[in-house]
Amino acid sequence: MQDQDRAVVEAISRRDVENAPLPDAEKALLRFVELVTRHAYRTTAEDVQKLRDAGWTDPQVAEAVYITAMFAFFNRVADAFGLQDPGYFWNPPPPPRPPESPSA
């Protein structure tokens, strides 16, 4: 992980998106992620339009929602079982099938 990535991870882990060394578009996406995480019922079409204006496509926004909700799922389960270590999510598990095309 290069230094810049480490700076990003540290800022994000401190929930400090504004000062993370990230392009504005990614900061906008993370603000939306926070909205979905904290009060998804408040999200509006305008929130999504802001992301389009920042250059994101609807498939990308949809996928961001899937990941956001998926990690809420993992967080709830981990908390309920009492897992303390925030690094509790694992290294990537294996692809179920051997990857068809060799990844770059």
Partner: peptide, 26 residues
């Protein structure tokens, strides 16, 4: 594997960033 640990519409790095942020928020 299907949605997170693979390329998709977002890059792996972007997905890891989202996952880290969500976990920090939660």
């Amino acid at each position: 594997n299907t949605v997170h640990f693979s390329e998709g519409h977002l890059t792996r790095r972007q997905k890891e960033m989202i996952a880290t942020y969500v976990s920090a928020l939660n």
